[in-house]
Design a protein around this nucleic acid. Structure first.
Length: 431
RNA sequence: UCCCCGGUAGCUCAGUUGGCAGAGCAGCCGGCUGUUAACCGGCGGGCCGGAGGUUCGAGUCCUCCCCGGGGAGCCA
């Protein structure tokens, strides 16, 4: 019998095939046994009916949840079967039979219990589609940049200096020298950008903030890009193209998984159909006040303010030109208004919040040194970075997209911890 | 760091005014010829998070501690 994947069973109707996987669940009714097997691509129901070998019946009765096995039989279309196809089982071969019950049952579990069993939780019905959609998201990002001629250039994860002066870093002992886990690869991308023109990387970054919300991870993945000769407006256009490309790719590629997690693909496509909304920081503050949320001009947006913005347009919105005082030192000032910077945050709709932060970068050494001073940062550790402005400095811009936040939006997932295989959260390093 | 909620069977939870520790699921045994987290009957299963206190009597009330969850701030 030919070994096939469950996702591809539709191509084998009428043929005898073999699937290899794990027993997800079993049910029975009189003389019929239903054996649900998952293989990582999907779940199929095997039916053990009249006329089948007694030994197969016995196995269908006794194999426990998460036993690994091979199941063979004829594929047939069956509207009563989950997924529309089922296997008329004639062959069952156990590979490994657990001797203790699988901890993750099919009924409800508490979050704490699930997180403590994350290594097993990822096998369950909602988690596998989420991880496949995450994969599709990462591939879409890579394809987009590749098609646009960007070069993948990795940034180091072990670094000696901070990127965002404000954010807390994880300190390390680097053979006697203080070092940190990177919170962003951006400064290094600005260097490789001057070597290669258009660059990107996708990698893990670390924030030692004691954040405890459904939108934060201690370790998360960023997709960052940097392009020479790209100005602020070009930067927004690039981000918009990327986000639309990712949404359309994921919807095209993983519609079955989106259905499995009960996310409406039509809504996602509609949200990226029109050009994204663009408002300035000042317009955003006015809109937030208008929605009855209190905040001061000059402050960054709090969670309620960001939520209000997120629901404003029914599509992603760029909030541009923030006050320089609340943004990092490397952002270029708005020539029309020197207390503002040429930056933008992209806020996803439906309350999913900020998924991109980006800006045009400072491109003269004098200006950069001045802004380091204003940020109370010492120039020495940043000398390699300020050096970039001494030889052939050009206008350049870039951004960082939060991969998990994006997957959260694409899948409609309430908590960010389900969008990465092994989330690192406050107070949880196991498993 | 701050605010709120919780901790009772392997899991999810109920437990009244302080008065004998409960259910569903999972496990095991049996039944059912199309199940959809199947269903029906039976069986086993407890350091009520920990320490102290009040009381004739504490899962229940009080104090402290530990652990978990939700949110804020900060950010992607």
């Amino acid at each position: 019998m030919k070994v096939v994947s469950i996702a591809g069973l539709g191509h084998h109707v009428g043929s005898e095939v073999l699937v290899q996987g794990w027993l997800y669940n079993k049910r029975s009714s009189g003389k019929v046994r239903f054996v649900l097997v998952r293989d990582g691509t999907g779940i199929v129901q095997g039916v053990v009916g009249p006329g089948v070998d007694a030994q197969v019946f016995a196995l269908a009765d006794t194999l426990p949840q998460e036993a690994s096995l091979k199941m063979g039989g004829m594929v047939r279309a069956e509207p009563r079967a989950p997924g529309g196809f089922e296997l008329a089982v004639t062959y069952l071969e156990p590979i490994h039979v657990p001797t203790t019950p699988f901890p993750i049952g099919l009924k409800e579990h508490g979050v704490g219990f699930l997180m403590a069993h994350r290594h097993l939780w990822i096998r369950s019905r909602r988690q596998t589609p989420l991880l496949r959609i995450r994969d599709a998201t990462l591939w879409a990002i890579r394809s987009f940049f590749r098609e646009r001629g960007f070069v993948a250039t990795e940034a180091p994860v072990l670094v000696g200096t901070s990127v965002e002066g404000t954010t807390t870093l994880f300190p390390l002992d680097y053979f006697g020298t203080p070092a940190y886990l990177s919170q962003s690869g951006q400064l290094y991308l600005e260097a490789t950008c001057a070597a290669l023109g258009k660059v990107y990387w996708i990698g893990p970054v670390f924030r030692a903030e004691k954040s405890k919300t459904r939108r934060h991870l201690i370790e998360f993945w960023m997709a960052e890009a940097e392009q020479a000769f790209l100005d602020h407006n070009g930067n927004l256009a690039l981000q918009e193209d990327l986000v639309r490309y990712v949404v359309e790719s994921v919807v095209a590629e993983r519609s079955r998984d989106l259905a499995e997690v009960e996310r409406d693909p039509a809504l996602l496509l509609q949200e990226v159909k029109e050009p994204f909304a663009r408002i300035t920081y000042d317009e955003a503050v006015a809109a937030i006040w208008d929605r009855g949320v209190a905040m001061e001009v000059g402050d960054d947006f709090g969670a309620p303010a960001e939520d209000a913005l997120s629901h404003l347009f029914g599509r992603p919105v760029f909030v541009e030109r923030f006050p320089a005082s609340i943004k990092p030192f490397y952002m270029k000032r708005d020539p029309e208004r020197p207390d503002r910077v040429l930056c933008a945050d992209l806020i996803a709709p439906e309350g999913y919040g900020e998924i991109i932060g980006g800006s045009q970068r400072v491109d003269t050494e004098e200006e950069l040194l001045a802004q380091l001073r204003e940020a109370n940062l010492p120039p020495e550790p940043y000398q390699w970075y300020t050096d970039l402005r001494r030889w052939g400095s050009v206008p350049h811009s870039g951004f960082g997209l939060g991969v998990e936040r994006t997957v959260q939006w694409l899948t409609g997932t309430t908590h960010i911890r389900e969008t990465i295989p092994f989330p690192r959260t406050l107070d949880r390093l196991y498993p």
